[in-house]
Simulated scan of single mutants.
Amino acid sequence: MVRITEDMVRKRSEHNEMQISTLEEISLHQQDIERLEYLDKWCRDLKILYLQSNLIPKIENVGRLKKLEYINLALNNVEKIENLEGCESLKKLDLTVNFVGELTSVESLKGLYNFREL
């Protein structure tokens, strides 16, 4: 199981002088990541999060990312849209080529004031 590590995040934050606490954008695509974790603790200022082409089955641990505007989860294993209520600034969610089967889960996005595109 590939997990998100602090070292992985630091290596991907070279444009931010390896500072992860003020990181606004990160690309963790094609890493075979199986769980979305720790970013809500280490990178509270994230606005853009690229996680395409991983093995993530569930949207989780992003509720504290109040500034998150865009999350790309294309080509993962997501089955349900959930746990985004705390993402107050979310405008766009990319779930292209996933396994979302419960369309009622789209209702959870209606409560996000800035949300514009799925």
Score class of each variant (00 low, 15 high):
83 N>L: 01
48 I>A: 03
50 Y>F: 15
111 G>H: 13
45 D>Q: 15
111 G>M: 11
86 G>E: 02
3 R>G: 02
90 L>G: 00
42 W>C: 04
36 L>A: 06
60 E>Y: 09
76 N>Y: 05
48 I>F: 12
116 R>T: 04
110 K>Q: 15
99 F>M: 09
16 N>V: 03
110 K>M: 13
116 R>P: 00
104 T>E: 12
28 L>F: 13
88 E>F: 05
86 G>F: 01
31 Q>L: 13
11 K>W: 02
70 Y>E: 14
106 V>S: 05
19 Q>N: 15
118 L>W: 03
18 M>Q: 03
43 C>A: 08
68 L>C: 10
109 L>Q: 02
45 D>C: 14
39 L>E: 01
44 R>L: 11
111 G>A: 13
77 N>F: 09
80 K>L: 09
68 L>R: 12
74 A>N: 12
45 D>V: 06
114 N>A: 14
74 A>M: 07
61 N>C: 07
79 E>D: 07
26 I>K: 05
43 C>R: 02
29 H>C: 14
30 Q>G: 07
117 E>W: 06
1 M>D: 11
102 E>I: 06
31 Q>D: 05
96 T>K: 09
106 V>M: 11
97 V>Q: 05
8 M>Y: 00
57 P>L: 10
73 L>Q: 09
29 H>S: 15
5 T>F: 10
90 L>E: 00
72 N>D: 15
51 L>K: 08
39 L>S: 00
50 Y>N: 10
112 L>I: 15
99 F>Q: 12
20 I>F: 01
11 K>L: 10
40 D>M: 02
2 V>R: 12
13 S>A: 15
56 I>Q: 03
45 D>A: 13
53 S>P: 00
29 H>G: 14
44 R>H: 09
113 Y>M: 07
83 N>H: 10
97 V>C: 02
13 S>P: 02
73 L>M: 12
27 S>W: 13
6 E>Q: 14
22 T>I: 13
101 G>L: 10
24 E>S: 12
54 N>A: 11
32 D>L: 13
33 I>R: 05
18 M>E: 06
102 E>H: 10
92 K>M: 10
92 K>R: 13
87 C>T: 10
57 P>Q: 11
112 L>D: 07
61 N>T: 00
110 K>E: 14
72 N>F: 03
112 L>F: 11
64 R>A: 11
81 I>W: 06
16 N>R: 04
66 K>V: 14
89 S>W: 05
24 E>P: 04
96 T>E: 08
54 N>E: 07
55 L>T: 03
20 I>D: 00
85 E>W: 08
98 N>R: 14
73 L>N: 08
49 L>I: 03
103 L>M: 11
5 T>H: 09
115 F>K: 01
6 E>V: 06
4 I>W: 08
84 L>E: 02
59 I>L: 03
51 L>A: 08
107 E>P: 00
82 E>V: 05
87 C>N: 11
107 E>V: 11
61 N>Q: 09
37 E>D: 13
8 M>K: 00
36 L>M: 13
